[in-house]
Simulated assay, not measured.
Amino acid sequence: MDTDLYSFKINLGKRIKALREERGLTQPVLGALIDKDYQVLGRIENGRVNPSSFLVYQIASALKVTMSEIFDFSKLSDS
């Protein structure tokens, strides 16, 4: 497995989860906002899938953040 891709997917998922939780949203609520099943979000947040750029855009819009904020992995905690 490509370790760069693996790290990217894990970090993207952690960042989306952190932003979602900061806003007090559950996976089902965010899923409803982007017209996706909450299980899709679970797979993204767990780093199991590499979402399309459009899906990341939809998530960013629903969370009211910029795409840059989604990809700012420096905001991730070490835990």
Rank of each mutant, 00 (worst) to 15 (best):
Y57P: 07
D37S: 08
R23M: 01
K17L: 07
I59F: 03
P51S: 11
R23H: 10
D78L: 12
D35Y: 12
P51T: 10
L33V: 04
L41Q: 11
F73G: 01
D72R: 05
V65H: 09
G13E: 10
L5E: 14
S7P: 00
E21I: 10
K9L: 11
G47T: 13
N46I: 05
K64Y: 12
K14V: 03
N46E: 08
I59K: 10
Q58H: 06
L30D: 01
I70S: 01
N46M: 10
G47S: 11
T3R: 15
V56H: 03
T26Y: 07
R23G: 12
N46T: 13
L19D: 09
S7I: 10
T66S: 15
L55N: 07
L25K: 04
M1R: 12
D35A: 15
S68Q: 10
S74R: 02
F8Y: 11
D2Y: 11
K9V: 06
L33E: 11
F71K: 00
K14I: 10
F71S: 00
I10A: 09
L12E: 03
F8C: 01
T66P: 03
D35S: 15
N46G: 13
R15E: 00
R15Y: 00
R15I: 04
Q39H: 15
E21N: 00
G31C: 02
S79T: 10
I70Y: 07
A60C: 14
